[in-house]
Amino acid sequence: MRKINIEGSSKTPRINFDGEKGVLEFYGRSIPENSVEFFEPLNQWLVEYSHNAKDDTVIDIKLEYFNTSSSKCILDFFKRLESMNGPVTNVKVNWYYEKDDEDMAEAGEDYDAIVDLPFKLIEVEEI
């Protein structure tokens, strides 16, 4: 299983996908004007991973900012994970937010309500 390491930019997050460990990490900001292009390779990777998935898959999301275009792509990404959860792998999502950032905490709660995946909201000092 190949690894994906995408450097972050001023508008896109840093991504580390490690298929051997079953860990997917998002860091930083996701505010591209058109997020579809950015998320497409990640969705491809997920399909690849699903053929050879680990028993447990952990998704760590540590976003500072995301725009509404990304919010839709993030949901689609979770939906893909949702359909893998159970038969293919056991998915866990860790949604990080900075202390006092109630908006980011709310966003995590909203995804948790929409998607049938185990979400853990984790407050941290700094992202």
Partner: peptide, 15 residues
């Protein structure tokens, strides 16, 4: 968020 689809430009109608 649940029901809209993204436009070709990648906008979600949520701005």
């Amino acid at each position: 968020l649940e029901n809209n689809t993204l436009s070709v430009k990648g906008t979600a109608g949520l701005g």
